[in-house]
Write a protein that binds this DNA or RNA. Sequence first.
DNA 1: CCCGCTCAGTGCGCTAGCGCACAGACGCCA
DNA 2: TGGCGTCTGTGCGCTAGCGCACTGAGCGGG
Lengths: 238, 238
Amino acid sequence: MSNPKVMRGPPGNRLLAALPRGEYQRLQRKLEMVDLTFGKILYNAGDPITHVHFPNDSIVSLLSVVAERSTLEVGIVGNEGMAGLSVFMGVDISRNRALVQGGGTAMRMRADALRSESNQLGALHRLLHRYSHSLLTQISQSAACNRFHTVDARLARWMLMTHDRMGTDKFQLTQDFMSNMLGVRREGVSKAASELQKKKLIHYTRGVITVLNREGLEKAACKCYQIIKDESESFLGA
Amino acid sequence: MSNPKVMRGPPGNRLLAALPRGEYQRLQRKLEMVDLTFGKILYNAGDPITHVHFPNDSIVSLLSVVAERSTLEVGIVGNEGMAGLSVFMGVDISRNRALVQGGGTAMRMRADALRSESNQLGALHRLLHRYSHSLLTQISQSAACNRFHTVDARLARWMLMTHDRMGTDKFQLTQDFMSNMLGVRREGVSKAASELQKKKLIHYTRGVITVLNREGLEKAACKCYQIIKDESESFLGA
DNA sequence: CCCGCTCAGTGCGCTAGCGCACAGACGCCA
DNA sequence: TGGCGTCTGTGCGCTAGCGCACTGAGCGGG
């Protein structure tokens, strides 16, 4: 079940890395490195959120759960962000589910610690604000995307977003899993994935996806990908 | 074109009303009452946001625009909230469009004024944080709703959310307009609306909707309505 | 080595919703 | 009062995606 990884780019959490040194050092004492294993549920709808997580090379999916077999990924959190943003907003119960979509490490912090740290108007506060905006944009855009675009285009978009956060060209994900992310049938993913494979954009076997042609994938995806990507990059840049 | 209104409940903005007296009085000097006419676009995707708006009896729709005829309402703002939340998050450009869906009055404030006011850790700051969470929940839930539920159920949900914010049982909205909100064809709205009319839940003629049986509408809607409603009420209550 | 489990591929009938085209109803205004 | 623009209802053919059922391929454990 372990994920074969070839590192690509720095492994740490970029949101934390964007903090000025002094503030980061103060925070560091409250941060704890943890392993997130694939499939772990960090919190469920209605659960109190005890910790927030800053992924390093792990990925967390935010799911809206309408029924047990009807789930939709509304947001995706990698090393550019933080899972458990509700805590920052003063609410420690979320209506979503946070699920580990890619195993790896993350820095975690107790919810009350984050609350007191972010209660000061420092760089962390400012960054989390801008991250909130980025996430809001991501959720809005993918809501519209899910409404208007075909499964093929959405799958390509989703793979790109995952690829960006994975740090490797090869990752383990079953069609069944992806069907829960895109909110479609497993068979629909099968069809869309083999379409992408036919075009030599990806290679696919028994839960192992390899990205072969990233530019091609970007062409196959709707432009929603670029909009979301731009927003998410700009908040760390500026 | 004016909207026949019978007042139901207090007309002012409830988010502002939840502020402690002192803070409200300080804010008041920067607030200005404006008329929002139906159809006005407060800002478009990519536009700088010059003012934020706290609706009184007006309603603002937040739309994600994929193509000119492909729009989807991702959020709805009435007297419980504020349009232009991005400003609070330190970003004065949004990827959405804000469109006046129900004419009426609103309190508006210059973006820079809001920024400096909410840069202090007071009640406004705390309220806007919780409102952000509420909006995030609303967007997530309706994203899933749009994916899984029928047009009929979604129309009922949407009418309830509108009704809550309208302060009257009768309001002017064409099917064409609603089709842009739900991201479906106008004909689809026609079918769904006449279904609701057949059940005597609403009455409908030439752009004038009358809610006849609210409990019935709630039964016809998916439970997404209640989830969103609960979240949005709780943030003002607590 | 084979059994059983997990994943992926496929075919079939069905439905919701799309796109288009047109008709009828209402209301406003000259 | 007549004409025109706006709004709604409806019919028709089409497609994407659903639900179901089953096959087959790989993989791991007894």
